[in-house]
Amino acid sequence: MLLLTCPHCGTAAEETEFANGGEAHLKRFGPGSPDADFEAYMFNRKNPRGVHFERWRHAYGCGKWFIAARCTVTLEVFATYPAQVTEPPEDVVKAIRAKRPDWEGWA
């Protein structure tokens, strides 16, 4: 059972206090967008073996959404950061690179 630290309130809590929201940093495609973009937004997920960005809500705590960068193989959590960004912050990317030099990057 994962242990995550909410970056909003600083509470380190167990997985049961959070709600998972799936892959992070998806770009929304709305009316008028091409079918392929909409399909990718709705259904295509990376499901990587390795570095993964996923959305979590501190559901039983402060109620805020954040993003966890973690390894799906070892479950190492590289960082958690507030969800109000469209891509991983630079320091997070740097921290992941330091631990996973072979990582192909988030995009």
């Binding site: 509470t11 809590a13 049961t16 206090e17 039983y60 705590g61 402060c62």
Partner: peptide, 10 residues
């Protein structure tokens, strides 16, 4: 103060 879970409720 801590917001948390008490058994099955907030």
């Amino acid at each position: 103060i801590r917001r948390t879970r008490a058994a099955q409720v907030a």
